[in-house]
Computed example of a mutant assay.
Amino acid sequence: MALTPQQYELVAVERYKDFIHKRNLATDGHVGYARWLLAALLAVNGGALVAISQLGEISGEAFKAGGFWFLAGLMSAIASGFCSWINLQLLAAGFDRWINPEMLFDPSKQPDGKIHRAKRIDFSLGCAIFFGVVSWSLVAVGAWRIYEVYAV
């Protein structure tokens, strides 16, 4: 069933608004979650290093036992944040390709529904998740190493 020009315009306007809304939701949600996750990872790993530095005479020994793991956790957290930022940039660029004002009047300008750079988006998201999990895991490893050294 073919749409009249008036019907097409109504549908196109709604699609256009929907694309903008989805881009904004994706951006806001992604940034908020990434900010919280990165802050938590940096605080936990960094806090562990600060705690080790406050141990006085045994801080050098404690750093040898667990400091490397917490430093690696900090680096993994930063890598997670970087991958998350790349993912957000790719996702926003994909939505921006879909948001074309010409689609409001020209049916040939409608997006084809394909996600631009979908494999890169999936890969960068996977990397962000991977490095986040690694960072949390390194907190546990560092804590366990210190516990092993100082457990009575």
Rank of each mutant, 00 (worst) to 15 (best):
W144L: 14
Q7N: 06
A12E: 02
A65K: 04
T27D: 11
A65C: 04
N87W: 00
L49Q: 03
T27W: 10
V50M: 02
A143Q: 07
A143E: 10
A140T: 13
V149S: 06
P111C: 09
P101Q: 06
K22V: 06
A2S: 15
I78P: 11
A39Y: 06
L38I: 11
F70W: 05
A65F: 04
L138T: 02
T27A: 11
S59N: 10
A92T: 15
H30W: 05
Y33P: 02
G142E: 05
I20G: 07
N24V: 11
E57L: 06
L25R: 03
E61Y: 07
V31M: 03
S108T: 15
A43K: 00
D106E: 13
Q110W: 14
T4K: 00
A65P: 03
K109R: 15
I20E: 11
K22T: 07
H30A: 04
E148V: 11
Y150Q: 00
A93V: 03
K119F: 12
G46C: 06
F19I: 09
W69G: 04
L74A: 09
L42E: 00
I121H: 02
F131V: 02
G32D: 01
R120W: 15
M75Y: 12
M103G: 04
V13T: 13
F131H: 02
V50P: 00
L104G: 09
P111E: 11
G132S: 09
A65Y: 03
E57M: 04
A26D: 08
K17S: 12
P101A: 08
A72P: 02
A151C: 11
G46Q: 02
A62N: 08
E148K: 01
A40V: 14
S53Q: 09
L74F: 13
D96Q: 03
N87G: 07
L55S: 05
L55H: 01
Y150I: 00
L49T: 10
K114S: 12
F82W: 12
S124C: 03
R120F: 14
W69H: 15
L3V: 01
W36K: 00
N87D: 10
A92M: 12
Y147V: 05
D122V: 13
D18M: 13
R117S: 11
A48V: 06
Y147E: 05
R35Q: 12
T4Y: 01
S76R: 00
K119I: 09
R23E: 12
A12S: 02
M75W: 14
M75Q: 07
L3F: 08
Q110F: 08
A26V: 10
A51D: 04
T4F: 01
V11E: 04
Q110L: 15
I146P: 02
G67I: 00
E14P: 02
L10Y: 05
K22L: 13
